[in-house]
Amino acid sequence: MIATEHRHCQKNARVFKTRVESVNTLTDDLFILYLSGFPNDFDPEPGMFLHLKVAPDEHPLLRRPFSIQSYNDGTAAILIREVGAGSRILHHLQPGDEVDTLGPLGTTFPKIGKDDSVLMVGGGVGVAPLIACCHEADAGARVDFCFGVRSENEVQGVEPFMGERGPVHIHLSSDDGSVGYQGFCTDIASRLLEERSYTKIFTCGPWVMMAKTARLAIQKEIPFFASLEVQMGCGLGACLACVYESTEGDFIRSCIDGPVVDGHNVVWERV
C-alpha cells in the first residue's frame, strides 16, 4: 500500500525477541546485523522495517527503525551506519544477544513486474530496501540500480546481481573513486534517464540525493516512490513525530503512511 491514504494500524506488527546471529563490520562505521528467531509467519515485503530496542533499559530511550535488506531462512540482514549511541550499541552486539524487536512495520515498494523498467537510486544505508526489491523483481523486468557508496568496501548485497544475466543491472558510484564512477549516483541516474525510458523510479538514501532524484522524476513525469529516512517515536502512527510535509498541505507519517511513499506527494525543497 502506498501513502496518501492514511492508515490506522500496522497490520501484522508484533513485539518479539530476535537473536543476533552475527555482526559483519564493513567499514569503521558501516555494518550488517544478522538477526534470527522471527515468528514463523514473519513475512516482510520490500521496504518494510523493524523497530529495534537497542538496550534492555531506557538508555537510549527510543527504538531505532531499520529497513530490512533481506530475509532468508529465518534470518534478516539489517544494514546500519553507526551515527550515535543507539547504532553504536547495535554494532557491539554479540552473537546470541537478544534484541527486542517490533515489526514488520510500514509500507512497501510496488512489486516489479515483467513489464516494468525501474530506475533505482540508492545511497549509503538507503540501498538496503532497494536490494530487497531487487530480490523480488520479476525475471522479465529491467532494473537499473544506481548504487552510491563512500568507497569500495561499502559495496555489499549486490553479488547476486553482478552477472550479465538477470533483470538487475548495478551501476556503482563512489565518493572517492575507489569503485565505479567517482561522483554522485544521481549523475548516473540522470544519464540513464536520457538513454532509456522507465515505468517507475525508486529511491532511498540521504535527503539531498532523494531530492535530486525527485527533480528528475518530476521532470520526466515518472511514477516515483521514496523510502523516507527519519528518527521515529512509536513506529505505529500514534505519536505523529516522524512526519514529512506533503504537497497536499498535510503531513505524512513516515512510520505508517510510509516509509515508502508516493514521492510526488512529498515537499522535497527545504528552506
Binding site: L61, Q231, L240, C242, V243, E245
Partner: peptide, 20 residues
C-alpha cells in the same frame, strides 16, 4: 489542527523533547 513543522521530536538523555 495541522500540528507543528517537523522536526517534532528529539531524544535527550533519559527524556524526549516533543513539539507535535
Amino acid at each position: 489542527r495541522p500540528g507543528n513543522k517537523p522536526p517534532r521530536m528529539v531524544e535527550l538523555k533519559g527524556a524526549l523533547l516533543n513539539s507535535i
